[in-house]
Simulated scan of single mutants.
Amino acid sequence: MPTLAADYAGGGGPLTAPRLLRPGTPDRAGLDTDEMTRLVREVRALTRGERPWCAGAVVLAGRGPVIAVEEAAGYAVRYSAYDPVADAGVELPPEQRVPARTDTPFDLASLTKLFTTVAAMQQLERGTLGIDALVSAYLPEFTAAAEHRISVRQLLTHTSGLRPELPLYACPDDRARLDALRSEAPSAEPGTHVYSDLNMLLLQHVLERITRRPLDVLVREGITRPLGMAATGFGPRPDAAATEDQRTPWAKADRGMLRGDVHDENAWALGGVAGHAGLFSTVRDLAVFCRALLCGGSYGTARILGPDFVELMLAAPGLGFGLDQEWFMGSLAGRGAAGHTGFTGTSLVMDPATDTFLILLANTVHPRRRSADSGPRARAATRLARAAR
């Protein structure tokens, strides 16, 4: 992975551990100050008006070990409910609203997939998992995966052919949910790209089978604890930004206004820990995650993955990570940028070519989900791309 030598502490001697992140300025990070100022102004504007893009947002951008921008805007909690008649949120009195802060945790939604991916890469590095092994080698009772010869690589590249989701939340109990996963056949020919939460759910079962440990333990012991990401973990998180007034018919379950409980209905039905959703985190913790991967799998003295396996994960077409996706990466796309988005309004982008990273956490589903609009994510990434020239 390309990494600037200046990012390492050498003291005049051989390069040693990657330097830890530190607050700074755009200028100190080697980023254009005007572009970073525009980035912050545009993120703040996303939280304003009667129908804002999101109730609250926190943005962090950096280069190398320097955090150039870290700003919060709007509200972590703005509404008490959604009014379907008025098609608008019921606003809390000003004194009851909770402002977004730079340390506010957000429901990461599908950014959780990145942590499941890294947990899988760790098993690849240890030799307990084969990238081209069949899922049936680890989970022979998953009969549909066995019949269609679905591989680990297909799970990581979303080419298993499995449909985007399965209504596990509608199953009466855990046994029925497990049976549904075991018997779910691909809806498209394996090898066809179909983005699917089911890929990461199957991968979760593979990881838990070969390690004999639950996913939350794998993430905590293998990723967040070594990296010092104390604010990252599966819920509940009562201090998190609120998400949706989750009721039918616009949602898939009747749960009311959510704050600190996972938004994704399937992850909720599975107890809050799932391969595709369930993690909560802050921008600063996610910056550490980005920094570690940009430094080949190490941060300070901690090592979560070897450089060769980071390179394998982020090489085209990408394992778990999306690569060069202009719809949310803007002008960062086209040169090996990697990242992901989450349904709740989250996104993360890393650009190895310029050693830059951008995290945008927002609660766009507060007070109710809407059709996805990734324009603001792409524009924020474009600001960073322009700043890094």
Rank of each mutant, 00 (worst) to 15 (best):
A29N: 04
D373R: 11
I223V: 11
R368D: 00
D308Q: 14
L124W: 04
L258Q: 14
E141K: 06
D103S: 12
A380R: 04
G271D: 11
V66W: 01
R369C: 11
A68L: 04
V40Y: 00
A137E: 15
S331F: 01
G89D: 06
H276T: 09
G161D: 03
D32G: 12
S371I: 05
L92V: 06
D245H: 13
T47K: 05
R177E: 09
T341R: 01
A241K: 10
P186V: 07
A176F: 09
K113V: 06
E141H: 13
T117L: 07
A76I: 01
L168M: 10
A253H: 00
G222L: 03
A76H: 01
Q325A: 13
T112G: 10
V273D: 02
G30F: 02
D174M: 09
G275F: 00
L111K: 01
R291S: 12
T157D: 06
S371V: 12
R370C: 05
V77E: 15
V66M: 07
D107V: 10
P238H: 10
R237F: 08
A109K: 09
G275N: 05
L20R: 14
I210C: 05
L348I: 14
V349D: 09
A287T: 11
L218P: 02
V43I: 15
V40Q: 13
G130E: 13
A76E: 01
P317K: 10
L319T: 04
L258M: 14
Y8R: 13
A29G: 05
D32H: 11
R177L: 05
L270M: 12
A145R: 11
V118S: 00
R182Q: 15
V77T: 14
Y75S: 05
L166D: 01
E91L: 14
I131F: 07
F280C: 07
A137K: 08
T282C: 13
T37H: 14
L201Y: 01
L124G: 04
G306L: 07
V40P: 00
R369G: 15
S136V: 06
A185R: 15
R335I: 02
S110T: 08
E311G: 13
I304H: 06
T112A: 10
L258P: 03
I67S: 01
T346F: 06
K113F: 07
T102E: 12
T243Y: 08
A188Q: 13
A381V: 02
L348N: 04
C54Y: 04
P367G: 10
T112D: 01
A381C: 15
G296D: 02
S281P: 03
T128F: 02
D308S: 15
V77K: 09
D103R: 12
Q325K: 12
G11D: 13
C290Y: 07
T112V: 11
P26L: 08
E71D: 12
V40F: 00
P23Q: 13
L323Y: 02
